[in-house]
Design a binder for these strands. Sequence first.
RNA 1: UCCUGAGUAGCUCAGCCGGUUAGAGCAUCUGACUGUUAAUCAGAGGGUCGCUGGUUCGAGCCCAGCCUCAGGAGCCA
Length: 478
Amino acid sequence: MSQRIKIKALLQTTPAEQEVNVKGWVRTFRNNQFIALNDGSTNSNIQIVVDFQNTDEALLKRITTGAALSVTGILVASLGKGQAVDVKATNIEILGDSDPEKYPLQPKKHSLEFLREIAHLRFRTNTFGAIFRVRNSLAFAVHRFFQEQGFVYLHTPVITASDAEGAGEAFKVTNLDLNNLPRTENGEIDYKQDFFGRATNLTVSGQLEGELGAMALSDIYTFGPTFRAENSNTTRHLAEFWMIEPEMAFYDLADNMDLAEGLLKYVINYALEHNREDIEFLTQRLLDEEKSKPQQERSEMSLLEKLQFCLNNNFERLTYTQAIDILKDSTPNKKKKFQYLIEGWGADLQSEHERYLVEKHFKKPVILTDYPKEIKSFYMRQNDDGKTVAAMDILFPGIGEIVGGSQREERLEKLEQRMDEIGIPKDELWWYLDTRRFGGCPHAGFGLGFERLVLFVTGMGNIRDVIPFPRFPKNAEF
RNA sequence: UCCUGAGUAGCUCAGCCGGUUAGAGCAUCUGACUGUUAAUCAGAGGGUCGCUGGUUCGAGCCCAGCCUCAGGAGCCA
């Protein structure tokens, strides 16, 4: 028997009456004669032609939507119009039956909400097949980008003890008997008796540990899961998500921005080159979806055009102060259309303001820099004006903040002074401060939310649809 | 967590002013057809109307609480 060939390769093979073997899952079985078989290597199916008059009827009955088959047959030019080649089956083996009365996927359009409830099977749809092949390419491209530039992939811990980073609510990690918690004399939980001898949690960011690596290896990046116990119920947040966090010694803020912009363009370009078919499918999916919307709500560019536009244009770089000036003079601010009106310098920007800048004013990705220190983290380098820090946020259309980064404060005194002001315990972060004591140097880094990147490249609207098994409040199924 | 909307067949949805036996399309099953492209044609089966309580002679429909989902906001990546 012939060796199995994947459908992606088979579809590119010239038919010459050769025998082939394909394995995959039935998408549809039409007319008792035509099987659309898919193995996930591509969204396209191979059409299997069954000689139903000379095939056992019991076998035909078992060729149902979702069943796993091994088909051996002859590769021929198709007589039909929908495809170039067919496999004329000579032997069909049912590897796994699929009860059609119970199998939830039908050969029809399903809502994303329904598919989210059957996340274990949604990979078998065209949309999710495309999404997860694109996600795979983007992940691979991230590694390639950094590896090509000599960055070291550093694994930072998933379990951490520091609760001092201020990056959001953390999930507690404990081994204690929750029904019988040991208490101290004051009645507090006695974590000394816990597994690590202290309170621990799942990491909310690998940045601080990443900086330690950069202070020896020069350029490092992390790429791993991150956890936030925030009760966030939005299309842009997950309780478990993947983050890419590079840290670079001897980089300033401008170097940092160049790297981030370069990374985003590199990985988008990689996906366009390697997942053209999937991105074209997702582009069409979006166009079909928008047909039901009124004209004014439809996007000006298709997904494909948006991605290409992103590659061919420089991201707009401006300071927070410049952004405030633009927003203050903007029509929605003057006409009081913003829910939060921009009155002056110092206010945090709301989603509506970021959207205005990115989607209405500049109509391209925007990098905002030099925010007021009050609204940013303690580790960001203070600028000479005494008011702002060397921070940068990259804002993408439809997504909002996709990257958040900064030049890090390398001056021990300035860092300690800021920690005191905000009330961050210096003793807990003694190891972090040590890097400023022993050979501290200018350095910078950023965090890129991987799912937000996948959201942008696939054109999907809900972050829960671009990670295989999303974790969010009230949901940890699968 | 807050605001808004939704929850009726496996899926997508309709259901009038509270009134008799809750409907459609698709899917499924049975049969016909056999080069189909979400095949087509004919027929059949399929319901705890999210849950709990209340109002009423009578509730899918009204009221209260809860649960879940979606969109927006906050937190952020």
